[in-house]
Design a protein around this nucleic acid. Structure first.
Lengths: 334, 334
DNA sequence: CTGTTAGCGCGTTCAT
DNA sequence: ATGAACGCGCTAACAG
């Protein structure tokens, strides 16, 4: 079943049929009608592979993220999908598992027209952006969200991480914390650094001397992270507040506090970045900074499609900043 | 940059170059070497759109699921992706949001060679399978996982839902429950029915008369679900055990119990199907039946690729059953 | 308004 | 071992 056969059935040339199917203005309504009916009758559908090839467009976008089992990236995908579907686009998902090597390989796969645009949130291990510059040079529409590389120069969508780092830290200070530890996951990531800077500036603004020993870099390994956190409490400068930059580190903190019979929030106050609706159900309920994940997906997808369709290009902001919410619960108040 | 240009640079015909790149035996090693080097030098990559078109293969599979913000479907995608990547395939994600209409539209998009194979977990609203039969008739490799339509006749991968429904119910009975409510989400879904049948048979096996008023169908709306659950406790037959078939209903139960100042597990015992690692952190820790989600993704993807590659077709089981784990925590023991 | 024609870039068959 | 030629199915430029 293809255009040729359909055209023969209709005694029309296949180019006429092709135009009719795409509702071209140069085809008479009567013919369109006939073609459409016959197409339906014979259950004709264009061969997307041929059509894509001919147009050198795939009607597909790629989303590159570190992981999918995640209360942030999940809703982001929802947001992206909601826009992609409106636009009639398909969504490819690629997972880097926070590996720069994987990110590189994936980028390579996408250099050659397989997708019409790319949205990416960087792997925590990504320390240089050559692979992304190549995509940019090839003029493949590219949007960064959350974990960005602003030096590439394509549009980025982020949240107010610095500000949130600042106010979360101040919140702990207001609630009596004097020794606040900061748990982070990467030295490369834009978000980690923004959050950390917010934390540091809040300490400074409140005349609290920052202690490098209270800043802990964690990794993928839960065990070593727990040791790392436990170790905090056996140092000279024991923390009375923990600010975790990702949820899993707050959870690890809960587990360590249970182990060490430290009461949250009496002995240690805890706050974290997290999008899990379960945070409210923990014991005690966990204070969070929560991102507008769905909106971030929609916003970045909207920008990507402007890039793809080359519409309103001059009105695309280089940087879009969405507001996150500080949700205070029992874990961080005295 | 294409084959023709590359061939010109090498003073070879482009068919020779094409063959060399695909390591054809009819090309001399020396030429292959030359071609490969030049290709690398000029950073040549095949145009995937042209290649796909020519071969009528997309090197892409589709995964159709109800939602992605979910501790079950997330790891399933991980499992699928891990296999797809090994095989050099791309993964398209489609979300039905549990709507049959969406599922139908998506199926239609995939009828025409856009993907080489499809993995699907049905929308809870899906009540007939015509759209899936069409895919089968078109001989598109198709695998069902978790929420299956076995009547279509393509391979399915599930967990032992009936058995888990049975043992979870027996567990509640063993812990003293005599009035066990069952919270479910759909009358269409294979998994819901299997779980319910396990529940009913466990009651029967323990000489407990089942009360239809204790079986509640819930929906997408959190508010009405909560009302529904609250209503359970104002009926004649107040439950002393709640068996939730999905996590969000257990969470709603926790919230209602808090509201009604009912103690879990003293007044009501709770158990649920859930894959959230946070279950252990709730107050009280929540007993769960936990699926091997990652494994399910890998298993179904493995089967799909056998279908796609037509390898070992006779060794593909019509039905693969994976074992789930009953994880007893404080919410369900006396 | 309809038809004819020429590729898109690649893979394959057949000839040399 | 290499090259010439065809066509996958569709779109679009051009003719009529």
């Amino acid at each position: 079943m293809n255009l040729k056969i359909l055209a023969k059935e209709l005694n029309l040339s296949f180019s006429t049929v092709s135009k009719a199917l795409r509702d071209s203005h140069e085809i008479s309504p009567a013919t369109k009608q006939r073609v459409l009916e016959k197409a339906k009758e014979l259950n004709y559908q264009v061969n997307p592979l041929a059509s894509n090839f001919r147009k050198q467009k795939s009607k597909t976008i790629a989303v590159i993220i570190p992981e999918v089992v995640n209360d942030f990236f999940g809703p982001v995908i929802n947001g992206i999908e909601s826009i992609a579907q409106e636009k009639g686009y398909h969504v490819l998902i690629y997972l880097t598992h926070d590996s720069m090597q994987k990110e590189l390989e994936i980028s390579k796969l996408l250099q050659n027209g397989r997708v019409d645009g790319i949205m990416i949130s960087l792997a925590s291990q990504t320390s240089n952006t050559d692979h992304l510059n190549i995509l940019k040079e090839k003029e493949i529409p590219l949007v960064f969200f959350d974990r960005i590389a602003s030096e590439v120069g394509t549009p980025v969508v982020i949240t107010d991480d610095y500000h949130c780092g600042f106010i979360a830290t101040e919140h702990l200070i207001t609630n009596g914390c004097k020794h606040i530890a900061f748990l982070t996951i990467s030295e490369n990531l834009s978000i980690s650094n923004d959050r950390k800077n917010g934390y540091l500036d809040a300490l400074k603004a409140n005349n609290i001397k920052h202690d490098q020993a209270l800043i802990r870099f964690c990794n993928e390994d839960d065990m070593s992270n727990k040791d790392n956190i436990k170790n905090l409490f056996s140092g000279n400068n024991q923390p009375d507040g923990i600010f975790a930059s990702v949820e899993k580190l707050a959870v690890a903190t809960y587990q360590i506090c249970e182990e060490l019979t430290l009461n949250i929030p009496k002995d240690v106050k805890v706050i974290t970045f997290s999008n899990s609706y379960m945070a409210a159900l923990l014991n005690p309920p966990l204070s969070t900074i929560t991102h507008p994940a769905f909106e971030m997906g929609r916003e970045s997808a909207t920008i990507l499609f402007k890039l793809i369709e080359k519409k309103g290009l001059n009105r695309i902001p280089k940087k879009t900043v969405l507001k996150s919410n500080l949700i205070i619960r029992a874990s961080s108040v005295r």
